[in-house]
Amino acid sequence: MPRFLIEAKYIINDQVAIKGPDVRHIKNVLRLKKGDALSMTDGAGIVYEGIIDSMQTQGITVKITSQKSLSTLPIQLCCAQALIKKDKMDWVIQKTVELGVSHIIPFTSSRTVPQGKENSRRERWKRIAQEAMKQSGQTYTPTLAPPLSFDKLLHASQQYDLKILCWENEASHSLKRILRNPDRDLSIIKSIIYIIGPEGGFTPDEIQKAIRSHFIPISLGDRILRSETASVTVASILQYEANTLLPPPS
């Protein structure tokens, strides 16, 4: 069951009104009726459970029966994705959000193929990210940065505890080796950013700039993956490894 996004300020006397496209989805796709249960979130970690109280053409009223705060992922994941073709970029945003990525930074680099209309595309990406968040039952709304240049991306990465750059020519470090390095104190890692380049890859100068910004180039194995495949692959691995990155219980 999807979890629908609501604004907490519209909760009045334990009731909340749902309007917009979600009304059609609830009525025509899920075919819910008065008295059926519904799960909602404010996008900031609070989950509301409720019962549909009334259904009108323009909106649905839900009576809230309970609420609770849920924790987010133990590791905050950021995907920095080079701009790629429209449908592929849409797919990356949808799937990485479903996999628990909480922040997405589109960027341009030397070998990025210009697509144009990035600002209008960003509004579309926001809608895709929000729908993926609701569909996967998450409680935190993912954030989507405006497209950045590669240099500005490196500057914006300073806040992250672990910084990874996927590079097909890396021979020494694999993602597994980085995550399970006994010399790295994973218990203090609260955030990870990973960079996925365009189909043409990175220039040597960009790799050196990233290394100077404390990114670790890593290999994803012998296969050369498409940009969108690499992005989802890394998100899947990091999601799986997130539990092992937690400190042992005291």
Rank of each mutant, 00 (worst) to 15 (best):
P2S: 01
R3I: 14
L5I: 13
L5C: 03
E7C: 12
A8M: 02
K9F: 03
Y10N: 15
V16R: 03
I18M: 07
K19Y: 06
D22G: 01
D22N: 10
R24W: 14
R24P: 00
R24V: 05
H25L: 06
L30V: 08
K34P: 00
K34I: 09
G35F: 12
D36L: 07
S39P: 02
G43H: 06
G45R: 03
G45F: 04
I46R: 04
V47D: 09
E49R: 11
E49L: 12
I51F: 05
I52H: 11
M55K: 04
M55F: 11
Q56F: 12
T57C: 00
Q58E: 13
Q58T: 14
G59A: 08
G59S: 13
V62C: 10
K68Y: 15
P74W: 06
C78H: 11
A80D: 08
L83N: 05
L83P: 04
K85A: 03
D87V: 09
K88L: 12
M89R: 13
D90H: 10
V92S: 03
I93C: 09
K95T: 01
V97M: 02
V97S: 01
S102D: 06
I104H: 06
I104Q: 08
I104A: 05
V113F: 04
V113E: 13
G116R: 05
G116I: 07
E118C: 07
E123C: 01
Q130R: 15
E131W: 13
E131S: 07
K134I: 04
T139P: 00
T139Y: 11
L144D: 01
P146Q: 08
F150R: 04
S157Y: 08
S157T: 07
Q158Y: 11
Q158W: 04
Y160T: 08
D161R: 00
C166R: 10
W167R: 07
E168M: 09
N169P: 01
N169R: 14
A171N: 10
K176C: 00
I178Y: 02
R184L: 12
D185S: 06
L186R: 13
I188W: 10
I189Q: 04
S191I: 04
I195A: 05
I196W: 12
I196N: 09
I196T: 06
G197V: 07
G201N: 06
P204E: 04
D205F: 10
A210K: 09
A210V: 05
F215I: 05
F215L: 05
R223H: 11
R226V: 05
T229N: 03
T229F: 02
T229K: 01
S231F: 04
S231A: 15
T233M: 14
V234T: 14
Y240M: 10
E241P: 12
L245C: 13
L246R: 15
L246D: 02
L246A: 09
P247D: 07
P248T: 10
P248W: 10
